[in-house]
């Protein structure tokens, strides 16, 4: 009888913990590994599901920015892939609504529509980003990466980085 009681208590505790954890990770901030290599010099990644947890960088993602969808140029954001909603990517925000962006590898200059943004990876070789799928709706963004928290030798703040000459606000 005592064993059953302990088990019940343990279940209750873990369910409560899970509820609180989910709420915090949905509303305030979460941590997670980087799975794709599109941000190569900034984050190191490993796309294997299991060893990825050991080798890849684990980052801290804050979600307060989602309240007003206020972002700055150069922020690193997490977003759902526009072609597969189960996949998320971490890439750098290059252009915000209303900006004119010069598309690399072509002479085109595009205006970013209202409510959209232009994201690119830091790794020029890997180009599954706005260069292939175009600008994405801001609603796909899930949070802003603020810190790398694992492995210990790479712990640091993620800096905003602007690429000069790519974007003009008019």
């Amino acid at each position: 009888m005592g064993g059953l009681n302990t088990l019940w208590l343990l279940t209750k505790r873990s369910i409560t913990g899970a509820l609180i954890g989910l709420t915090i990770s949905d509303r305030y901030g979460s941590i997670g590994p980087i799975r794709d290599s599109s941000m190569h010099p900034t984050f190191s990644a490993c796309d294997n599901m299991f060893s990825g947890l050991l080798k890849a960088d684990i980052v801290l993602v804050e979600k307060f920015c989602l309240e007003k969808y206020k972002f700055s140029h150069g922020d690193v954001v997490i977003f759902k892939s526009p072609t597969n909603h189960r996949q998320t990517f971490a890439q750098r925000l290059i252009g915000l609504p209303g900006d004119w962006v010069q598309v690399p590898e072509s002479r085109e200059i595009l205006k970013i529509p209202e409510g959209h943004c232009w994201v690119e990876g830091d790794n020029a070789a890997c180009n599954f980003d706005s260069r292939s799928f175009g600008s994405i709706p801001l609603g796909l963004i899930q949070g802003r990466v603020t810190h790398v928290i694992w492995p210990p030798q790479r712990i640091r703040k993620v800096e905003r980085k602007m690429v000069p000459g790519r974007v003009s606000p008019y």
């Binding site: 007003k68 209202e114 409510g115 709706p137 609603g139």
Partner: peptide, 19 residues
Amino acid sequence: WGSLSVGDVVVLQSPENPR
């Protein structure tokens, strides 16, 4: 689960204004 079908009424974030 990704099992939406044609004809469902959905609530979505507007692509023009995420709020």
